[in-house]
Amino acid sequence: MNVEPLLKVENLVKHFHVRLGAFGERTATVHALDDVSLDIQHGETLSLVGESGCGKSTTGFTILNLHRASGGRVIYKGQDLTLLDDKHMRPFRRDLQIVFQDPYSTLNPRMTVGEAIGEPMLFHKLAAKTELNDKIAALLQDVGLPSRFASRYPHELSGGQRQRVVIARALACQPKFIVCDEAISALDVSIQAQIINLLLDLQEKYGLTYLFIAHDLAVVRHISTRVGVMYLGRLAELAPRDALFEAPLHPYTKALLSAVPEADPVRERNRKRQILEGDVPSPLNPPTGCRFHTRCPIAADICAKVVPEWKAARPGHLVACHAVNSSSA
């Protein structure tokens, strides 16, 4: 992969400072994101998976500068986005869009669907007032809604319809890159499939690049080009989809994949599951060394002391584990 990536994330760090105790007398740091590096290639779908609270969404928010990074860089078109204030970030926001998890709360209840979609087009001067209605209708058609929905209010729509509106609103900016932050998690399973197919169609039509944040491994396997696995604020493994699902290297990835049930009952009965001991440690006080060492079945002494290097085990297959040797290739 020597093509210049669309977006480069280098050693991204996000720490939240919180106050604890009845009077906020103690402060603590939530290590939401530590040292995350990844490239996002043109036209790919890069998925991030992991348990709740592992930093998947924080990664998306920090890349888009909706959370201010505590360290590291996000390079887009040669510009480090983490250095930009709100005003200078605005021109980039057009290219970098996001679809949120909850379609109920991400639409302004006082704006009609048409206004919600038209607003960014007018603001970024992507449409003249005269052609606005046609463009709104075209976008609604793109996401499979009839154009008369433009005069509806969000509370009149179902969850799936709202998520389509949210997608249309993101498309209104004519973006190159969309973060889908658990974009389907709040929806019914039947609707999820519709939205996923919609996202795939739109990707093809507009040449979009997705950062797909999810916890449903079946969906991730269906749509991804590459998959990143996160654990407690760090990337554990990042590999092309088939390599990750067929030949995972990191013990956490193996455990995660072994939790996916099989559809075939016979295979499901004989399936070997690897149950992890204990709970995810608190991000307030993450373990030293490899963050996974407290639960890792193959942990050695070094794992508690040294943070494993983020290295390529095979070409394009990155992993952070002491037990995996880096490739000489």
Binding site: L64, L66, D86, M89, R90, P91, F92, R93, R94, Q97, I98, F100, D102, S105, T106, L107, N108, P109, R110, M111, E119, P120, F123, H124, V166, R169, A170, C173
Partner: peptide, 26 residues
């Protein structure tokens, strides 16, 4: 702190528009 304000920021709208079109009506 409502998500639709974050969404409006993510759309790159200016503070003035967010204030007048998103915060005030609500």
């Amino acid at each position: 702190s409502r998500p639709y304000i974050t969404a409006a920021m993510a759309l790159g709208l200016s503070n003035r528009i967010i204030m007048m079109r998103y915060v005030v009506p609500n």
